[in-house]
Amino acid sequence: MMSEVPSDRAATTGRPRPRPAHLSKGALVVPAVLVVLGIFLVVGTATMDVVGEGGLFGPTVMPWAVAAICFVVAVFLAVDILRPRPEYDPAFGAGSRAATDSSDGSYEAGPDTVNAPAVGTAIGGVVVFIAVLPWLGWILSATLLFTAVAIALGNRKFVTCLLAGLALASVIQIVFSGLLGISLPAGFVGGF
């Protein structure tokens, strides 16, 4: 989902608020990802086994350009995230390290809090799904995935989740494999 960056102008009035998530130190993950992608491109392009001559613009020109974009944007984004924001930081400490840290502290309690256990459960559910798919087959793996995500979103009726997941996975198997012939992994069931 695209989210709008809240307008700075609107925030100038009223008492200072905690820094929102996208300006917190955690947001530095994004420039970090860009740097990693840039390095990925540089390494990949430098070691690329170029086929043929490729003409004036070979297969390496665009990667170099995009790598440069990645690094430049990462720097600008990091500056944008870290730069002092009087509207969020306490007025007297504007720009100082301490002020930034304290705003980080208050952000922990703010509405942007990330429910880490829930995210872990959801991601873990997908990881397990991928790992067991070839062995358990589509029906059971998808049931597990469904249950994991439902629990991550706060559902505590474990049995109902399992049953609902089993129903959905079965319907998909019947309709798409049975009626339309898309192949889904059968897992150990296929051994019979």
């Binding site: 959801a122 559910g125 997908v126 799904f129 798919l133 589509w138 998808a142 995935l145 469904f146 249950t147 994991a148 995500v149 439902a150 629990i151 979103l153 706060g154 559902n155 989740c161 609902a164 997941g165 959905l168 996975a169 998909i172 798409f176 898309i182 889904l184």
Partner: peptide, 20 residues
């Protein structure tokens, strides 16, 4: 449909689509 079931269903459908 309760949110937890809806998004669980989305996760299953997304995985199915990508695999298929």
């Amino acid at each position: 449909v309760p949110k937890s079931y809806l998004y669980a269903g989305i996760a299953v459908f997304a995985s199915f689509g990508v695999y298929a």
